[in-house]
């Protein structure tokens, strides 16, 4: 397959945040990949929620992560099931186990590679995509 993975359609997503998730998206705006870490016991959790499921603490930290990870699973979306998807195919939803954030898996995309190059276990490097509404999203490319 020589088709290249593109970014998913913008039109089907509008960012909503709360005080627990906003720091992730604010960091993304600054092109900084982070994940929610408990300030008490150090356990990671994603998406960010009000309590640490390990110790019930509400203290959180937002460490700088290296921006690399491993592809845990992926799909290739090839068919438009709503009109907004036309012209934005194929795209690759991806589950990324983030380096230096054990237990934190990010739902993101792999872009810019040939579909045939996608493999579970592939190494990934984060990049950033700024949408027309100013929201910045992480998306990954195949790495070393």
């Amino acid at each position: 397959m020589s088709e290249i993975a593109v970014s998913p359609p913008e039109a089907l997503f509008t960012l909503a945040t709360d005080r627990w998730t906003a720091p992730f998206w604010e960091a993304a705006r600054q092109r900084r990949l982070t994940a929610c870490r408990c300030g008490n016991c150090g356990a990671f959790r994603m998406p960010p929620t009000p309590f640490c499921p390990e110790c019930r603490s509400q203290e959180v930290e937002w460490p700088d992560l290296p921006g690399t990870g491993t592809l845990f699973s992926f799909s290739v979306v090839r068919r438009a099931i709503t009109p907004e998807m036309e012209g934005h195919l194929p795209y690759v939803p991806a589950l990324v186990d983030l380096d230096q954030a054990p237990g934190a898996r990010l739902i993101s995309n792999v872009v810019g590679c040939r579909l045939g190059e996608l493999r579970i276990g592939a190494r990934l490097v984060v990049g950033w995509r700024e949408r027309s509404d100013g929201v910045v999203l992480p998306e990954f490319r195949l790495g070393e």
Binding site: L12, L15, T17, P47
Partner: peptide
Amino acid sequence: PANAFFEAAGL
């Protein structure tokens, strides 16, 4: 806010 984490990826 919770759904944003999958909607952003085109799920």
